[in-house]
Design a protein around this nucleic acid. Structure first.
Length: 622
DNA sequence: ATACGGTGCGCC
DNA sequence: AAATGGCGCACCGTAT
């Protein structure tokens, strides 16, 4: 039932990058949307590559690249800087992007930098390595908007071949730098994710036009209503202007600013109008001000509503309605490596022109409001939308990294962690609902300590209950304090050059040290590994992967592939992960992983009489 | 006019 | 002197 996995996932082995049989690539293309291969109006201008037989090039465009594709098919892996881009072009050339691994010098550089942000574009990286630079004249032409198709061929060819040569030297230098480290397996993990990402970006997400129209109308009406009522109190101020809002709230409406324990107001950074700091006007602050008069209460309520409706309209609904009316309900986004310090993926919207706004709009795919998930539906009539997420993923990863038997036992027992939070906080004197307690459950996992007396009692109880984890995290802090860096169990390295212990024993970057390894292993390794196996295991199916949001993957499929989705999600997000971590990282993952699945006609919506599927899978190590 | 930093807010 | 982490986008105000 599953598609056949390629050898590099059946027997994943980063040593493949030591083979001398590889192809280094660099392509030049027309420059709409920065040359995106997903833009059908772009075409390839020049392909340049280097393999065991020397250097080659071709001016013939994406439909006539059989020589290039043959060179790729004869290689063990493909090298390029920002390989997602070249893979998307190669697919248009007829190459099977899942057939062999890539080595992306951009992604490898990201891994070498760990959590330190540095520019990852080829020129800057070459500069740091002292490897020279790309041809500055052609670089400047392209950067200033000249289409490569208008650049003289002799100049462009020299530029392309130079890029190939320099990329190969960079690859060589990176391999040298990784010698004696355990970073190459991390690079392997990042790189096997690139073909699935290249594919997902191509698909986009599909909106249900009827639902979007309804929600849009409802929200526009609600927004008009709120604005009219606000007008009665705020007399013409712009409620989205922090400065105008600050004047109103702390002026005529008579609110008192929140102060720290020395009586100094807690403010944002100074502006021209507010040289002593701009008073805060975000929702959390407004709710904490303690409205006393009827007018104050009414204003806070209305402003809260206005903020939400305005964000919903501007960030999502107006664009959704444009997509439904002008683009068949489709919206598109990128999924990028190289942005985050924890090595999670990040998403960025692909800005698209809408006639009805005479403007470009885009939205990323990882912060869509949950309430709007049901606005999305499969693009094909009768198909299903499925979401699979890693149950309590970061908590379980913390349990493994912290070697914490209490977490292991609670996961196996299906223990309700939030009820524990509720009970401890309530017992400490402040009755609280389970829902409200949820916000506190994992705060101490990331080093959170401040709060009310009852909340602090819970944080202490957490550290006590999971003392093995706490000890591990404190050990990380000691290592960071002593060496300014942390090498994790799976080989990834994080750097904290500013780390200092204060006299009272507080490490200045403690919360980062507590958080980064957990978040990284869970959402930069485990989920991408699962996503990759899922993609390869379903390649022969009609099913398409359409998104991934940190601990989840989303897909559209016909009803007869429902079982395929369910079985593959469990296989890929549990068994495949255990096996990959063991073989590539020599990590025997020791807490059961779980998968939760919601399948229906819309994203996040179950069919009637159906429930979310939840499955835990025991580790192979008992 | 355009660029940029700050703020606010959505997600995990 | 600070005490949960990580992002990207729309909007505002300010600088150029």
């Amino acid at each position: 039932m599953f598609s056949q996995l390629p050898e590099f996932l059946v027997n994943p082995n980063p040593d493949i990058y030591r083979s001398s049989n590889y192809v280094v690539l660099d392509f030049e293309c027309t420059n709409l949307e920065h040359g995106s291969p997903l833009n059908k109006d772009n075409r390839l201008v020049l392909t340049a590559w280097r393999d065991r037989n020397g250097q080659h090039y071709n001016w013939k465009g994406e439909l006539d690249q059989s020589e290039l594709v043959a060179a790729c098919n004869a290689s063990d892996f493909i090298v390029s800087h920002n390989a997602k881009f070249e893979l998307q072009w190669l697919e248009r050339c007829g190459y099977d992007i899942g057939s062999r691994p890539v080595y992306c010098t951009l992604v490898a550089e990201w891994v070498l930098c760990g959590n330190i942000r540095k520019p990852l574009n080829l020129d800057d990286v070459l500069e740091r390595y002292g490897l020279g630079h790309k041809d500055p004249i052609v670089s400047r032409l392209i950067k200033s908007g000249v289409c490569p198709s208008d650049i003289p061929r002799s100049m462009l060819l020299r530029y392309g071949l130079t890029d190939v040569r320099l990329t190969e030297r960079l690859f060589d230098r990176q391999m040298g730098l990784m010698h004696g480290t355990r970073l190459l397996p991390v690079v392997y993990t990042r790189c096997i994710t690139i073909p699935p990402l290249a594919d997902i970006e191509k698909q986009g997400l599909h909106l249900d036009a009827a639902r979007v129209e309804l929600e849009y109308d409802r929200t526009v009406a609600a927004y008009a209503e709120v604005m009219e009522q606000l007008e009665g109190i705020s007399e013409g101020i712009n409620p989205q202007s922090p400065t105008q809002l600050a004047q109103l709230i702390y002026g005529r409406l008579g609110f008192e600013e929140k102060c720290d324990n020395k009586g100094v107001p807690i403010r944002n950074k100074p502006t021209k109008q507010f040289p002593k700091g701009l008073p805060k006007t975000d929702e959390a602050t407004l709710l904490s001000l303690g409205a006393k008069t009827d007018e104050q209460r009414r204003f806070i309520e209305l402003k809260k509503e206005q903020g939400k409706l305005s964000a919903a309209l501007n960030k999502n609904l107006s664009m959704f309605i444009g997509a439904c009316r002008e683009h068949d309900g489709m919206i598109y986004a990128e999924l990028n490596h190289g942005r985050t310090v924890t090595h999670r993926l990040s998403s960025a919207g692909r800005r698209t022109y809408y006639k009805m706004f005479d403007d470009y709009k885009g939205c990323q795919f990882q912060n869509l409001p949950r309430q709007y998930k049901p606005l999305f539906s499969p693009r094909h009539e009768g198909w299903l939308f499925g979401e699979a997420d890693g149950s309590q993923l970061e908590f379980r990863v913390a349990g493994h990294l912290g070697n914490d038997d209490v977490i292991r036992q609670e996961v196996r027992d299906g223990y309700d962690v939030h009820t524990f939070t509720q009970e401890v906080i309530s017992r400490a004197g402040k009755a609280i609902s389970r829902t409200d307690a949820k916000a506190h459950t994992f705060k101490p996992l990331y080093g959170g300590t401040s709060g009310t007396r009852a909340e602090k009692a819970y944080y202490a109880a957490f550290k006590d209950k999971y003392n093995a984890l706490t000890t591990t995290q404190d050990d990380w802090c000691f290592e960071v304090g002593a060496t300014k860096k942390l090498e994790t169990e799976w080989g990834m390295r994080f750097y904290f050059p500013e780390a200092e212990f204060s006299r009272d024993g507080w490490l200045n970057c403690k919360t980062n040290v507590y958080n980064i390894p957990v978040q990284s292993f869970a959402t930069a390794d485990i989920i991408p590994i699962g996503l990759t196996y899922f993609w390869h295991r379903t390649r022969d199916a009609e099913l398409m992967l359409v998104n991934t949001v940190h601990d989840s993957i989303e897909a559209e499929f016909p009803p007869h592939e429902r079982e395929l989705f369910e079985l593959t999600a469990v296989e890929a997000l549990t068994h495949d992960v255990y096996s990959y971590l063991d073989r590539v990282y020599n990590v025997q993952f020791s807490v059961p992983l779980g998968v939760g699945m919601v399948i229906g006609r819309h994203w996040g919506e179950l069919e009637q009489n159906e429930e979310e599927i939840k499955i835990n899978v025991e580790t192979p190590y008992g």
